[in-house]
Design a protein around this nucleic acid. Structure first.
Lengths: 241, 241
DNA sequence: AGGTGTGAACATGTTCACAGCG
DNA sequence: CGCTGTGAACATGTTCACACCT
């Protein structure tokens, strides 16, 4: 048990009245939220599990089970009230709180994320940018001036940053991470291809874009190999579908 | 079984002589590969499962099991030969083949990915860029001129693109995806927050950055709630509300 | 009828613990 | 002795199938 973990646990306390939510369900709930929001914009006020599951790309039983973690907000024979679901998913995901994002490392990726509409549009305003490069300090990127990494702790506290996004080179990632934590940040999205060392009260998610490509590469390799011209002997568990 | 899936299956054919690899192991193998490459650069020629697992942020038993899918390339009492492992992981992941990446949608994110060093550095040269905007066509981004999306099928065939990266707005994503598939692309990395509809011989991975933030938000919300000063009554697994 | 909510079966993934090799 | 490789136990996640409500 080296690194911190979180099974599907949850306590019942005041503003977080939901029962245990499995890790895997959390990610899907965020997807349902996006689909629902878009459906509401199109005037849809009710959806069946089948419809919503189709739009989210999951099995309808999985979807119903996921929604059951919110409580029973569906109507049998009818479906789910879209607005009501949105409300509860947002509550479960903690989106009713204020969130404020800091991006560290204003290179190609950091620059893009600082300007990325998807963040503010979905409730995550970017309120601080940091870099080491003196030439960048003070330069506005997406309307926000870049601060020096040394000021991370102070600025994060002042602007109540809740999420730090690390887009620095690998070598700087751990250092920057420690600075963010010193500034009170407890949630970190890490684009640098290193495993960050943090205390158990800090949550880190890593996104390694090259790893994504490598996984795709694997499936392509396997597909070509699997595409043997001979009929499959059914006794071997191999490739099916 | 609506959507395509891939259990940990694999056939033994000529150039793909590895046994079944579980889905979850594939992603980790890509991580081990990065760690190993970096270790080799630092002159490390042998590593124990404990060391490698630590650097990759996983349990050592998990690591050994993952590596066992490659075959038995460790030495008992000693550890693993780093160079040999790299070789085999690369082979398993299909990285010995030529890969060529096309980025579609040269907005903030597309621009960043076109310039992202992590792609070419890890064996994925970007060889084509596409956008709809007439003002962008022909403009070089990262040394490569942008082509019109209409030319996707032709250009992808010509440059033997194997992986397409979609950074367009959601509304254009399915259309662009179909164009890529028409151009022979069978692996797609999708940054648009929509579920792409593809035939089963196309592999899609989605990266939804806002969903990542929402997952972080959830854990922070839960942590605050869970940080109740009272000891947990274990008997009540109770449901909220 | 029509669709939710969920126990139970199944599938996948992770960790333990130790035999056995170098 | 030390560390790999792996069966078996455990944990998590997914899907089925149907009772039950509207």
């Amino acid at each position: 048990m080296t690194v911190h973990e979180h099974g599907g646990c949850s306590t019942r306390v005041d503003d977080f009245p939901y029962r245990a939510v499995p890790e895997a369900a959390v990610g899907r709930l965020a997807v349902y939220l996006r689909v629902l929001t878009s459906m509401i914009e199109h005037g849809v006020s009710t959806m069946s599990s089948e419809e919503l599951a189709g739009a989210a790309g999951v099995n309808s039983a999985t979807l119903r089970k996921d929604l059951s973690y919110l409580g029973s907000y569906g109507t049998r024979g009818v479906g789910y009230d879209t607005a009501r679901l949105v409300e509860h998913i947002e509550r479960l995901l903690g989106l009713t709180r204020h969130h404020s994002v800091a991006v560290v490392g204003i290179g190609n990726l950091g620059h893009a994320l600082a300007n990325y509409r998807g963040f503010p549009d979905r409730g995550f305003p970017v309120t601080a940018l940091f870099d080491l490069d003196e030439d960048l300090i003070g330069v506005p990127v997406g309307g926000l001036p870049v601060d020096h990494v040394d000021s991370i702790p102070a600025v994060c506290k002042e602007r109540e940053v809740t999420i730090g996004v690390i887009c620095t080179p690998s070598t700087a990632a751990q250092w920057v991470c420690d600075l963010l934590v010193a500034g009170g940040v407890r949630c970190i999205l890490n684009f640098a291809p290193v495993v960050l060392q943090v205390s158990e009260d800090v949550e880190v998610r890593r996104v390694d874009l090259a790893v994504e490509l490598q996984i795709l590469s694997f499936y392509q390799a396997r597909r070509c190999a699997g595409a043997a011209p001979v009929a499959q002997p059914v006794d071997s568990i191999a490739v099916g579908r």
